[in-house]
Amino acid sequence: MRTEIFGHRGSAGTHPENTMISFKEAARVGADGIELDVQMTKDGELVIIHDETVNRTTNGKGWVKDLTLVEIKKLDASYKFKSKYGFCEIPTLKEVFKWAKSNNILINVELKNGLVQYKMLEEKTIALIKEYKYEKRVILSSFNHYGMVKCRQLSPTIEIALLFMEGIYEPWDYANRLQANSIHPYHPVAKKEIVIEAQKKGIKVRPFTVNDEKHMKRLASYPCSAIITDYPERAIQLLR
Rank of each mutant, 00 (worst) to 15 (best):
Y146A: 12
L140W: 06
V189E: 01
S155V: 00
A175F: 15
A161Q: 07
S182H: 06
Q117A: 13
R137Y: 12
E131A: 05
Y169N: 13
L106Q: 14
I160F: 11
Y118I: 13
R137G: 00
E170I: 02
T157F: 06
Y132P: 01
V116S: 11
L106C: 01
I160C: 07
E122K: 02
K200V: 06
K133A: 09
K201M: 13
L154W: 02
I105E: 02
N211V: 13
T209N: 12
L115K: 14
I107R: 01
V116R: 12
Y186Q: 08
E166R: 12
M120E: 15
P156E: 11
I129H: 04
I90Y: 02
K98E: 15
R137F: 13
E166W: 11
L111I: 15
E193V: 03
H184D: 08
P156Q: 08
K119N: 06
E197D: 13
V96Y: 00
L93V: 07
E123C: 03
E166A: 14
I158V: 15
I126K: 06
Y132W: 05
P171G: 09
N104H: 10
F143G: 04
G114V: 10
E159Y: 01
N211T: 11
S102A: 10
R177Q: 14
H184V: 15
P207R: 10
I105W: 01
D173A: 03
L178C: 13
L106H: 12
L93Q: 05
I183P: 11
K112C: 10
N211W: 12
I196M: 06
V205N: 09
S102D: 15
A180M: 14
S155R: 04
I196G: 00
N211E: 07
Y174E: 12
N113Q: 01
K130A: 01
P171M: 07
I139V: 14
T92L: 07
N108I: 14
V109K: 01
F143C: 12
V96S: 03
K136G: 01
A161D: 05
E159W: 04
Q179S: 11
Y134H: 00
P207E: 12
K150Y: 07
V210W: 06
V109S: 05
L115C: 00
K201H: 15
L154G: 08
E89V: 02
I196W: 04
E89Y: 06
L93T: 05
K133E: 11
R137Q: 13
T92E: 04
L128V: 00
Q179R: 14
V149W: 03
L140Y: 06
A198C: 15
V205Y: 04
W172F: 08
I126H: 08
I203L: 10
N181L: 01
Q117C: 09
H187V: 01
I196R: 13
M120L: 14
